[in-house]
Design a protein around this nucleic acid. Structure first.
Lengths: 145, 145
DNA sequence: TGCCCTATGCAACGGAAGTGCATTATTTGC
DNA sequence: GCAAATAATGCACTTCCGTTGCATAGGGCA
């Protein structure tokens, strides 16, 4: 497509593989999310990139979710968080959905990807399309302090 | 306490048993919640009691939660819902917490009290205090239409 | 009756998500 | 290389919901 350009770096590749045009802002946000290992709110991103506009960041995160490299997290705080998906995640029920842990002490939300959500039993005629499991409590870091 | 008064009806008893002064508004809201078998938002209550004030209803629901006859539900829609607890519910993890089902078709949220939340495995040093499990999909009513 | 405490009603605030639109940057076709 | 088209960005503004402050009304109790 653009052989003339410099070879895309790691971050550009991630975006391009998911049909996201790698603009400067998107690359920075992607990098920021990759470096953070906790779920990140729009406000978090906004504070980090003080110079940039909230709407742009909002739409950047939205694009990431729509294109499937990130997922939205509702951790019950009322503030939407975002976290990058694991490789090969298709955000599908029974295979990809993991639980989220919100620490009431440090207020951080993390993805617990090691443990998938156990199979949910539903009454007759109910069809599950999506599952959100949030555990609140004390995280390992705060617990060991 | 007040032998002179008319014997308290079913609704008054519920409130008095939980140290809630049975005012007219509270009795009406309680009755409304009892009749609805789906989780109810403040706006729902507000629309039903068109004459009453939003704040009063808000605080009524808040009181119900604080006194333990109702629980707050975060079903991921961003709108807080309320539902009356089952009898003897102490809202405790591993015994009382049930899952909530949000139907994407009729937009209603129901408590699935028949199925408790399965035991959650957490990595080392994590302490669970609260669990919120929301399943989204198609409910039985919408599915059979 | 008068006091006190609680419940209620009105108004306003605040945070966060989301939208409309003009501007700037980047492709694409010629 | 230039102009048109398309996409991304930035600013302003709106909306929605939860929440709080404060003044008023009501009900129990001395």
């Amino acid at each position: 497509m653009n052989e003339i350009r410099t070879a895309p770096n790691k971050y550009e590749k991630i975006l391009e593989n998911n049909n996201i045009k790698p603009t400067a802002m998107r690359l920075l946000v992607l990098q920021f999310l990759l470096n953070k290992n906790v779920a990140t709110s729009l406000t978090d991103v906004e504070n980090y990139f003080a110079k940039s506009d909230r709407t742009t960041l909002y739409r950047t995160l939205k694009t990431f979710v729509e294109k499937g490299i990130s997922h939205k997290i509702d951790d019950g705080t009322g503030i939407t968080k975002y976290a990058l998906c694991e490789d090969n995640c298709r955000c599908e029920i029974d295979t990809d959905l993991h639980l989220h842990f919100h620490c009431t002490k440090c207020s951080e939300t993390v993805c617990i990807t090691e443990y998938k959500i156990p199979p949910i039993h539903l009454p007759k005629d109910y069809i599950a399309e999506n599952v959100n499991l949030v555990v609140k409590g004390i995280c390992d870091k705060c617990n060991s302090k």
